[in-house]
Design a protein around this nucleic acid. Structure first.
Lengths: 256, 256
DNA sequence: CGACGATTTGAAATCAGTCAAGAGCAGTGG
DNA sequence: CCACTGCTCTTGACTGATTTCAAATCGTCG
């Protein structure tokens, strides 16, 4: 892409470009952000509730998730993340982390100092918009999860989550929606959809018996996408995958 | 505050100042944003799923809420809003609304064109940060709601919501946390916490019988704050009410 | 092989939902 | 002023989805 910049951060640029037009200089500047790459094991914490991190972490490989622990001790997973996702951009402003970020599988993250993020956002309006956009889409996914956990039955919830993962992995270039990696245990899955592991198991069996999906060790094959999307009440607009361009024209114009 | 600017938008400035230091010029510029004030009835829609609004709405008086309708027809309320909240700032970038915004009570909103928002954000870094911050706190509240509906039992969920409302109204200068307006029907309450109206009623009776709250027509009196907060597993850090100042120092510095 | 974690299955218990009806309350109109 | 209407709240009895508890099976890895 850019001449001499480090291409390690490329997945972030690709992700941001889903939504925000970035010119070559924007991309170069993003790729040139200072960073330290760390290799993390499955289960390792990236940031935790109450912490005041100084960096934000771009996920380069592997899977991660965010979660909170309720007073009862129960865990609720808030979001799942894959290559190209910035795991804690919100902390750049909020400063005190209000939840945990943890690796789901082994993987690598690039740690970028908040300072550098702030400077770049101040210097480049389109980059600032791209960061904001990223957090807004995050928020949109949270809203859909509230609906999922609040108003859908067990079978629907799980099917919905499987659809979301499928589509997001496709967009991230990690395979297609009909066959993808699903590295979560059923216990983790249950914490993402607000159910018990036992019941998640029953519903997965159920979806399998109905010929909608096929499971092998740590991956999912969707046998009938339309049927699964229907069962899962899945309507992907909330992912805002088609928002690019027009959406941010105003801001770009205002930049001049 | 500012010399000749219209003070109608003052509640927004107050809210943004919770998090972001804004100087006099910033405040004046915000207050000078072009806007149209509309008086809305209870139940009236402000924005709707699939819409492409051109304005965002600042709530000047009354209460509003955001919600989505699941495929089953069930409604899930996503957030509640009071004076000073911007109801749909996210749409400034996302453009296609992914949920509905509706008045809970009668009230007034100031409609501000997105263009003006974008121009102001482009011109004033601190204002841009304030807007971003506002949407990030929004996101933090969504995360807590996921936990609320996903991992807390009925009684706890409701107590938690009552605590959140109490604190937010206090911060917005609408009374104190021990006695505040609660203009929701039990049906609306049930859609906010993912339960049925019948069960919400039972739990409210239950909280009342335990001497935690007292209800009168459309308001709540908290008889024992600490006990209610404990029952509600309420830990207010997620509201980020103490984040001001240090949090955004970097960005302000970067602005120079 | 043995051990450990993850998955699967069954049976019983429970929290919340459903259905239904009555009571309270506010607004409307005669 | 009162009857009527409609909406919200309250309560009871029953149902059902999901949880809980417990145990068996499977798979992987040292």
């Amino acid at each position: 892409m850019s001449r001499d910049a480090d291409p390690i951060l490329q997945p972030m640029v690709n992700k941001l470009r889903l939504w925000q037009d970035l010119d070559g200089d924007d991309a170069s500047a993003l790729l040139a952000l200072p960073h330290v790459v760390r290799t993390l094991k499955a289960g390792q914490l990236v940031a935790w509730d109450g912490d005041k991190p100084q960096h934000c972490c771009l996920l380069l490989s592997g899977f991660a998730f965010r979660h909170k622990i309720a007073g009862s001790g129960a865990r609720q997973i808030l979001s799942l993340h894959l290559r190209g996702d910035v795991l804690d951009l919100h902390n750049a402003l909020l400063r005190i982390a209000d939840h945990n970020v943890q690796m789901l599988t082994a993987g690598e993250v690039a740690m970028i100092p908040f300072e550098a993020i702030h400077e770049l956002a101040a210097a480049r309006l389109r980059v600032a918009a791209a960061f904001w956009y990223e957090t807004l889409v995050d928020g949109s996914i949270f809203r859909e999860w509230i609906v999922n956990v609040g108003r859908r039955d067990a079978r629907t919830r799980i099917a919905h989550l499987l659809c979301e993962l499928a589509l997001r992995q496709e967009v991230a270039g990690l395979g297609d929606r009909l066959s993808y990696e699903m590295p979560m245990t059923q216990e983790q899955l249950s914490d993402a959809v607000g159910l018990t592991p036992v019941h998640v198991n029953r519903m997965l069996m159920n979806l399998g018996n109905d010929g909608l999906i096929h499971r092998s060790l740590r991956s999912i094959t969707v046998m009938d996408w339309d049927a699964l999307a229907k069962v899962g009440d899945f309507e992907p607009r909330y992912l805002h995958l088609d928002g690019r361009g027009a959406a941010t024209a105003d801001l770009a114009r205002a930049a001049e």
